[in-house]
Simulated assay, not measured.
Amino acid sequence: MTIKEQLLQEIESSPDNILAETLDFLRFLKTKETETQPKPEASTSPTHANTNSTGRSLLEHLKTIGKWEGDDLEECLRLVYATRGKAKFDYDNPFE
């Protein structure tokens, strides 16, 4: 029996909550696989050599996700501001 057949067999006998978690994990693994494959410009650009996110790498990523469409930007920003809270850390910060 192939791995795919085994997975399908397990899927058939699993509840929806486990399937939802499994789907999220599978998508994560596929994304991780795509991100770890070297891009053609990776050899010439030092910002792509590091797999950790940096401010620069996040800004570079913004260039690839398109532009805002619609007229609800202000509404979305109000929602973000209304629902965000202060970060709370329950451990000692070694940098303080």
Rank of each mutant, 00 (worst) to 15 (best):
K30C: 12
N50K: 13
H61A: 04
F89T: 02
D24G: 05
K30S: 13
E5F: 01
L8H: 02
E33H: 06
T51L: 14
P38I: 09
D71Q: 10
L59C: 10
T51F: 15
L77K: 14
S43Y: 09
A20P: 05
G66L: 03
S53K: 09
T54C: 00
Y81C: 00
D71V: 00
L73W: 11
M1C: 10
L29S: 05
I11C: 02
F25A: 10
E41H: 12
E35V: 12
E21N: 11
T31Y: 13
L26P: 01
L59T: 10
D71E: 02
L19Y: 05
L73Q: 10
D71Y: 09
I3F: 07
P94N: 13
N50D: 15
E35M: 12
L19W: 06
T36E: 11
L73P: 07
N93D: 12
Y81E: 08
A49P: 07
L62A: 04
G55E: 09
E10Q: 13
Q9L: 13
Y81V: 00
L73G: 02
T22C: 15
S43M: 08
T36A: 14
I65K: 03
S45R: 12
H48E: 06
G70Q: 04
L19A: 03
V80P: 06
L59F: 06
L77N: 14
T36M: 11
E96Q: 00
E41M: 10
Q6K: 09
E33P: 04
R84N: 01
E5M: 00
E21P: 00
L19C: 09
T64G: 06
T54H: 00
S57A: 11
D72V: 11
D92A: 14
E69I: 09
T83P: 06
A49C: 08
T22K: 03
E10A: 03
K88P: 00
P40D: 01
L79P: 03
L8S: 07
K4F: 04
A87C: 15
F25R: 07
G66A: 11
N50T: 04
R84K: 08
S13L: 15
K88A: 03
D71L: 03
N50F: 14
L7V: 07
L59N: 13
C76H: 12
E60D: 14
E69F: 00
L77Q: 15
E12H: 14
E10Y: 09
S13W: 13
T2K: 06
T64M: 07
I18R: 15
E5N: 05
D24S: 12
L58E: 10
T2H: 01
D92C: 13
I18T: 14
L26W: 03
L59A: 10
D16S: 04
D24M: 15
I11D: 07
G70R: 03
C76I: 14
F89I: 02
R27Y: 13
K67E: 15
N50C: 12
L59D: 14
G85H: 08
E60L: 12
G70N: 00
S57W: 08
T51E: 04
E96W: 02
K86L: 15
L62S: 04
A87S: 13
D24R: 15
N52M: 04
I11A: 04
E60S: 09
E75V: 06
W68A: 06
I3W: 02
R78T: 11
K88T: 10
T2Q: 00
L23C: 11
W68P: 05
P46D: 06
N50P: 06
L19G: 03
V80Q: 08
H48R: 09
E60N: 13
A20I: 11
I3L: 07
K86N: 03
